[in-house]
Simulated scan of single mutants.
Amino acid sequence: MSVTIDITGLPQERIAFGPSPLAELGAALHALSEPGHHARLHGWTTTTAAGLKPELADRLHEADFMWRSTRSDILLPAQPRETLAEELDDLDRMDDERYVAAALEINCAGFYDRSGPSPLVDAAMRQRALDLAAARGPRQAAFVRRMLADPPGTRAWIRRLLEDCDEAFFADTWRRVHVQLATDARHKTELMRRKGLSGAVAAVSSALTLEEDAHGSRLVVDKLSDGRTTAQGSGVTFLPTAFGWPHLIALYAPGWQPVIQYPVSSGELAGVLPVETVKLRLEAVSHPLRMRLCRNLARASYTTSELADAYGITAPEVSRHLAVLKKAGLLSTRRRGRYVMHQLDVAAVARIGSDFLEAVLR
């Protein structure tokens, strides 16, 4: 399983490394939403969350589906700018259909790698977005309804939210990490100049490889998901992040320039468990489908029917796999109205090993 980006014939000058304030803000917001994914950022997430004004915290919760489970493509600019304001200006120039489809892509899971109509113009996509948003909770459902009813007003609301985050905590954070990210981007660019793309790719991540053969050239991102796109006619942008580990994010939606956001440093999570518990948990995650289910469940809570729909299998089959994960103590379940939501216990999974956790969260 992997995400493949076809770069056959792509000139090296169309491959760029550079820091993006908008992408880094998205990574920081994800860390605040899911601190369990980012144990080494515990001090920053705890301090920052404690310092948020209640009104800003409520607004972040309302819109967090755009960065909680994974990053919306609108938060990963293919042309990084020097300032957040410039990148938000670029975002303002995007048409409503493209913007809304990208903002709601998490709710329209299952269609990411296929071209399709925007929920603004297609009734089936609109209803799907509304149905899946309802499982996320009343605030998220209301937000999606508002976005579909008033795209310009909601886009302005999102911009103000990101600007308020910049004023509240991110501007200071960006000043501290920008030098590190810019230095890393220059280093990768120099490696590409001296050693070719293969040298730069090797320095980005061991989960990223360059394949070259008689059929062409491809960037392959090792992930527990499948996807394919082409960079021909556009290019590839690499965005370094100080907040990203263990995630390696690949934007490969049809019609978008491919973007890869990679962490500039790595870390480890340690833990000690009884042998019998380790054995039970390893058996639980050894099944290929359960590994793929873990990828979804590590990012957000899902209903059984959502998972069945995403993987094209029956709800009873999903239930059997969830029961195995729950018996191993790797799954939490809670009821929200008529929905029963399941989510991976990331802290428990971390005890299995950082390599497995990285694969699931990559």
Rank of each mutant, 00 (worst) to 15 (best):
G216T: 06
R362F: 11
R71Q: 15
T48H: 13
L132Q: 14
F17G: 01
R159P: 09
E86W: 05
A347E: 12
A298W: 02
Q257W: 03
D184S: 14
A57C: 01
S115H: 13
R136C: 10
V346N: 10
I106Y: 13
E97M: 10
T48R: 13
L91E: 05
S2I: 04
L88S: 08
K188C: 07
S206G: 11
E358L: 00
P77R: 04
P254S: 12
L293W: 00
S198H: 10
C108N: 15
H321I: 01
M125I: 12
F238M: 03
A133P: 01
I352W: 00
A103Y: 03
W245D: 15
H187R: 15
A133T: 02
E211Y: 07
S115V: 04
G26I: 07
C108R: 15
R40L: 11
E317Y: 08
G110I: 09
A124D: 15
S301F: 01
N107W: 03
P21T: 00
S319P: 00
F169N: 09
R93Q: 13
H37D: 15
P152E: 11
P288W: 09
A156N: 06
A16N: 10
L181N: 06
A347M: 07
I7V: 11
P288M: 11
V144D: 07
R81I: 06
V346I: 14
S286T: 01
T48M: 13
M192N: 02
F170W: 04
P54Y: 05
P263D: 12
A63Q: 08
R338A: 02
W44Y: 11
K188Y: 04
F143I: 06
I313W: 00
A28I: 04
D184T: 15
D355Q: 10
I313L: 10
N107T: 08
Q180V: 06
P11W: 06
C165L: 07
I249S: 14
V3Y: 02
A242N: 13
R126D: 04
L56A: 06
A348H: 04
L289Q: 10
P246R: 00
R334L: 06
F169K: 11
P274M: 08
F17N: 00
A348P: 10
L307V: 07
A203F: 00
V349F: 04
R68T: 12
M125D: 07
A348T: 06
L25E: 07
G267K: 04
S265G: 12
Y339K: 11
Q79N: 09
F143D: 09
